[in-house]
Write a protein that binds this DNA or RNA. Structure first.
Lengths: 364, 364
DNA sequence: TTTATTATTGAGACCGGTCTCTTTACGCAT
DNA sequence: ATGCGTAAAGAGACCGGTCTCAATAATAAA
């Protein structure tokens, strides 16, 4: 209609009110959709708003209402398909519920995480979804909670915080897959993770500050002990933080005299690098090495052989976290809940059964 | 120190000022880090702020300064590794420059995109980075620009908008890979994309509203024409929006009488599904089908055979977009620039050379 | 017709910062 | 001692909405 609608660099309710010939309060009522207004006035204001190309200032609104309509998300690394899928779940639910998402990467670094939380709090997010880098260092999270900001923990719980938590049954999953490997005759089973300790050596599971990984390692060790395998702590390898390091560690393990017959990769990024190393070293999976990875990443189904994985309901993890948070924001004052989503072992062809394989050979 | 620091549900500068025994203006000067204050007062205010556990309200600050310190990002789908990597690039740069990122998924849907832009504008983002779902429908973007919100287009340009744009040299890349296939003796080359038209049929490249894809198809057709191949438009297949559809389309193509000898997948998600279909159909790559995919996704290097891809500098795409935007926000008033990042053809083993393969057969 | 009740509208405070303008005070030169 | 320049601090408006409360108009009840 109007060929050059105004620039509206900042058309305010007052401007609209003036043009419509009503008070600021009345215009605000129409524009904000609250209170009671006559149809005649409503039309006049709506028309004026359209003509002026009025755009509400959500900032000003948040100012008085105290709700910003945003939720802050802190993940380790959005580039990791695990997180990008979870974030997709979060944003989908958030959008449905009328919230927008401010995304932050901690890079699995507590300092960055602290800064992120501070920024998000300053921006007055209505709630937080956090995947804490370290469970042991959560004072900043405690602060946020105490200051009244609802929080949901994603993938990594910290019971000390007493907030809603959504995790997968990592411990059981690891226990199950370990048991399966042991039943298949494996004894030298390595667990490879990005988590690290100051001296890069694993001693006890309490050294591991990333909740999900700690639970997995505990499950791994539990299954080992159950089978009478001792000293399996030595097979837990840390520090697979980047592709180069992962490949260095995997290469070292696999070329050593006492090489593992099976490796459990703590996430799909690590699993991929282990796979690459095998290819580089000319090792055949599963003949020379059995491989199991956490996270059913897309690539795991198309390799030769396809790799056996622990399928986590990642999207649902994000969805559930967001849903829990939205409930809180809508006034749910119930006690903190801990949702544990079931994982599923997807058996493909990267695991060898040493026991039955040996048998026919022995009898032939 | 203090065992129970206050709840600070809303400690304001006024509160801090009162406790420090100074005026609100003075406290604000200290807390906001502007103006001039005596050391004695500064210390008093700082101490009071700490005791009260004061947290600045960024919303209120934005209100007066007119800058929110956030940039809005609209991508098609964060779950797609292409976008998650680009977003990583964006957030890294944004954080360095002191901005936070509000992330939105359009789901490649223009209506959702419009709503997202509206919301982001209402939240008064300082700038926008958008990957428009359709180049043909950009009035909402034009509006945003006219209202004074700096914008950078990511991966998909629209010259009509006259704003900074960062894209890969999609046209050349497609042209190059097509030429290579043709030189290898391929004549029946299919191009498979998620983009769609109302009747699911491709006629002319102007039907394609996603900029990057349109440029690729144009490159593809250019190379075909150059080689004297006519009617290759028929080999452009649309509508690979979801795994099921991609697999349906690929299966139909590959089981038809006139099956393609090569398929170019418009992104790695589609490439993966084509790969799966080949496996299902028992087709050998590259003997029965040559496959090339856009985007050097992690899985492409570990399949058997590894697949030839067009490597786009995705992270840098995001980085560059963010950098450009930050420059604008810092007052750069120069003309809109169009940055074209070079792609790289990563030749692996999924492409067969029909010409040399046929020759020995013919002479045997 | 008068009063009670309700629907509309207006005036203005408020949210929590920033920022301009003014006042006060101090140090130094004349 | 007087005057001036400048540093430090206070007062209060303002940003753009929301929201309470009072005022007015319209409708219903008596």
């Amino acid at each position: 209609m109007d060929p050059t609608p105004p620039r509206n660099s900042s058309v305010t309710v007052a401007d609209v009110a003036r043009m419509a010939g009503v008070s600021k309060a009345t215009a605000a009522r129409v524009l904000g959709g609250y209170g009671t207004v006559s149809d005649r006035v409503r039309d006049a204001v709506t028309l004026a708003a359209r003509n002026l190309n009025y755009r509400p200032n959500e900032l000003a609104r948040s100012m008085t209402t105290g709700r910003s309509g945003t939720i802050g998300v802190v993940v380790g690394d959005i580039e990791n398909p695990f997180f990008s899928l979870a974030v997709r779940g979060i944003t989908d639910i958030a959008r449905q519920a009328g919230f927008t998402v401010i995304l932050t990467n901690s890079g699995e670094n507590t300092e960055t995480e602290k800064a992120a939380i501070r920024t998000l709090l300053a921006k007055r997010v209505d709630g937080l979804i956090v995947s804490p880098a370290k469970e042991s260092d959560v004072d900043h999270l405690k602060d946020a909670i105490r200051s009244g900001c609802p929080m949901v923990l994603l993938d990594r719980g910290s019971r000390a915080l007493g907030v809603d938590t959504v995790v997968a049954d990592d411990g059981q999953a690891a226990e199950g897959i370990t048991r399966r490997l042991i039943a298949g005759g494996h004894r030298r089973i390595a667990y490879l993770t990005a988590c690290d300790t100051p001296d890069h050596c694993f001693r006890t599971s309490s050294d591991i500050s990333t909740g999900s990984v700690r639970r997995r390692i505990e499950g791994f060790l539990r299954a080992c002990r159950e089978a009478g395998l001792a000293g399996m702590e030595a097979w837990v390898r840390l520090g697979a933080l980047a592709p180069e390091e992962t490949q260095r560690i995997a290469t070292a393990m696999l070329t050593a005299k006492h090489a593992p017959t099976a490796i459990i990769a703590s996430d799909s990024v690590i699993g991929l690098d282990v796979f690459k190393v095998c290819r580089t070293l000319g090792l055949d999976i599963p003949r020379d090495l059995s491989l199991v990875s956490f996270h059913d990443a897309d690539w795991t189904a198309v390799t030769t052989p396809p790799v056996t994985v622990v399928r986590q309901p990642v999207y649902q993890l994000g969805e559930t976290a967001a849903r829990l948070l939205v409930e809180r924001l809508n006034g749910d004052g119930g006690p903190a809940s801990r949702v544990v989503l079931q994982t599923e072992l997807v058996e493909r062809a990267s695991v060898a059964d040493l026991s039955t394989e040996e048998m026919p050979r022995a009898s032939e």
